[in-house]
Amino acid sequence: MKNIVKIEQLELASAVVELGKKVGAGLAAIGLTGAGAGVGIVFAAFILAVGMNPNLRGELFKLAMLGFALSEAVGLLALMMSFLILYS
């Protein structure tokens, strides 16, 4: 008689799995704070550099765009992890 699983227990188990998925996805998205700070630092440094030497604006803009794309991609990895947990 011990091995019988009641239907309520199954519902509880699936509810716990759903809860874990949602909480895990939310926690995985915390990593985006780092990407936000990184993008902010890139543009802050760009503005500072242009203020000091306005002649180099064109070259610095390319570098800033490269840094923006790279740091944003790192943040999107965290977002990918979040989607992976949520929808797989």
Binding site: E72, A73, M80, F83
Partner: peptide, 16 residues
């Protein structure tokens, strides 16, 4: 891997 995931993740996240 980093080259592929960068393009893919940007496009996916943008469209979502």
């Amino acid at each position: 891997i980093s080259l592929a995931v960068r393009l893919f993740a940007n496009m996916l996240a943008g469209h979502l």
